[in-house]
Write a protein that binds this DNA or RNA. Structure first.
Lengths: 356, 356
DNA sequence: AGTAATCTCTGGATCGATACAGAATCTGAA
DNA sequence: TTCAGATTCTGTATCGATCCAGAGATTACT
């Protein structure tokens, strides 16, 4: 059994409080006594105050939770999520705070419990779907949180670091439309829960499940509606997951068809890279007959080497700011609602539309 | 103030224990009473047992620490570290365990304290230098840990998931040597603490600070010694960090020189990619006059697209196994010491050596 | 009916520390 | 010498739960 504070106190012949002070408030006792205490502690093999007991008494933990409402390992699979995490960790470092990554079970009840059982002082919630249950649970515990998307019931005190998804998406789509593309496809991840990979019939963007996807699709739609390509004329492609493979698989049938789109606008770089994979796999003849332009979203590192035209959002900055907002809340509530700028990055993956 | 267990107990008119059981041991009370209790809890806004108090009493936390002895944000910057984390998180998910990522201050005393203050049940230590102080601190707390490298004082109970660095490095180096390269350079990150970027005079590999680097350099050395290229004849290049930029910067002077090496063997893919960057930046004339082969180490995703010849080590597997070993220790101590297989991946970045 | 076994629930002890008010000792100035 | 003020240390209450031995009430069995 590891010795406790009490054991050290007994060994030195002082009170528990004094030993505690030796560790946590050195100014409260003479340096000589403090030295004696630490010495004795070393001798007994006392490793310092028990972190859990300390948190209980102090009422704070020194850690913030980072919540991915999907599978935790996703956080390390998606390059953009990784950059977000990098930003969060940078802020955490500055504040001497640890990061607790919590696996979220698929069962909603268990998921809620996971959030309720996390020993943290607050949460950074990475939004990639419906996380209202999580915000509920966090709020129920009275803990502060910051999200990466404006919440629908967003009050003035609701903190977030987000981008204007719709405007950002519109900027790439305008670029594509401006180059003459009219037969286009929009590609998104799990647009409708449970839908199969491939073309999807959607009455409108409102049917998209995730707010982020909805926002991006809206931007795409707006741009093409502005040049006379109305909603039913565009193809909506559903990918079964946010991965290259899923992106490639989703477009494949369309590419094999007689008149493929001249451009595919994807809701993420990862999906877009998948499209490029699928295009590269076509035989050269069809490739020259039917050139296909591609755009992504996020501007991850691979996008640059792949020459992918995309819209950049500052991932690390997003994470850093979110954590900063949580750990060091601004006095002005308005300062807690941040909309980051995005930037259209033009590369080689979009060409002028071929004359039909 | 949030209500406590006691408040709920009072409201229902039962004892604290019973309310506690309602949450943690449903089989210990009648379903009817349990329902009434949970109902009352909802009514009062009781969010469930306080995680910290629970851990204190139960004596375990439900989280494991992941320790990067360098800067925490490094963990998300280095692709191999990210894959390791992905593996750890996968295992954590299976065991319903959270991951605590702890920022480690540069000051050694504070660093030790950070480890001592972490509320966790054990540690996965990602080895990338000297972490003996951390292992000491963890051991001092009586917590279990698993490392990613054989420790020097490794007893039979010492758990780790590692690779044979030397043999792995030798396999790529043999490949390069077999293709006739004799004028070569070895590139490593921070080979000697504080050394500047660029060529380094080393009496032998033993002078390399980090065990991992030492192992890899040894493998490189062995391979070339076997074909008659002895240590003083090879150039050792020091990179100031594990990044593309650092890799590129480290080789630049050598490439600019009159007789550059015909091959550069890097201790990591990231560095190797940096070398490729530097090579691509040369003017075409010198590029054809002095072709340079390059090898990496790890086989990260970018290596494939860059055509980098490298040696693959299973990063996710490493993380997964490490966490698994920690969370579910094997009865046999020998099973706690894992050496993973590596594989030479031949791509296009290594060509036959030009005839001198 | 009698007794054992089972099911529910209770209460005090405990996990390992920190907070805070106050006691004891020491300083220095009048 | 005396007394206010600073310094150093103590002791009790407390953070919010879980554990465990055992009390009552029920059920089961012979």
């Amino acid at each position: 059994m590891k010795p406790t504070l009490q054991a050290v106190a007994d060994a030195v012949g002082v009170s528990r409080s004094t030993v505690s002070n030796a560790y946590s408030r050195p100014d409260q006792l003479s340096p000589a006594l403090r030295a004696r205490i630490l010495e004795a502690a070393r001798g007994l093999g006392y490793p310092g105050p028990n972190p859990t007991a300390r948190s209980l008494r102090r009422g704070y933990v020194g850690a913030i939770g980072v919540l991915f409402t999907s599978q935790l390992s996703y956080a390390f699979t998606d390059p953009f999520a990784v950059r977000f995490l990098a930003g969060v960790s940078r802020a955490a470092e500055r504040h001497d705070t640890s990061l607790l990554l919590i696996p979220v079970p698929t069962d909603l009840n268990q998921a809620r419990q996971a959030v309720e059982n996390a020993a943290v002082d607050g949460f950074c919630v990475y939004c990639a779907g419906d996380e209202s249950w999580a915000l509920d649970a966090i709020g129920g515990r009275g803990l502060p949180y910051v999200t990466t998307a404006m919440q629908s019931d967003s009050g003035p005190a609701q903190r977030y670091v987000a981008i204007d998804e719709r405007a950002a998406a519109r900027s790439v789509a305008d670029h594509v439309a401006g180059l003459g593309h009219r037969r286009v496809a929009f590609l998104g991840d799990t647009i409708v829960p449970g839908a199969p990979s491939g073309p999807l019939r959607l009455a409108g963007v409102d049917e998209a499940g995730h707010p982020t996807t909805r926002g991006r699709l809206s931007g795409f739609r707006d741009a093409f509606a502005a040049v006379g390509v109305d909603w039913p004329a565009v193809t909506v492609l559903n990918a079964a997951g946010n991965s290259r493979a899923a992106g490639a698989e989703a477009v494949r049938p369309l590419l094999a068809g007689g008149s493929p789109p001249t451009a595919v606008l994807a809701c993420s770089d990862v999906l877009a890279l998948g499209v490029l994979d699928a295009l590269a796999a076509r035989d050269p003849a069809t490739a020259t007959r039917h050139p296909v332009s591609v755009t992504g979203f996020d501007d991850i590192a691979e996008a640059a080497t792949a020459g992918l035209t995309t819209v950049r959002q500052p991932g690390e900055e997003k994470g850093r700011l979110a954590a900063e907002l949580l750990l060091d809340p601004p006095a002005e509530p308005a300062a807690g609602q941040v909309l980051l700028d995005t930037e259209l990055i033009v590369r080689t993956s979009v060409r002028t539309a071929p004359r039909s």
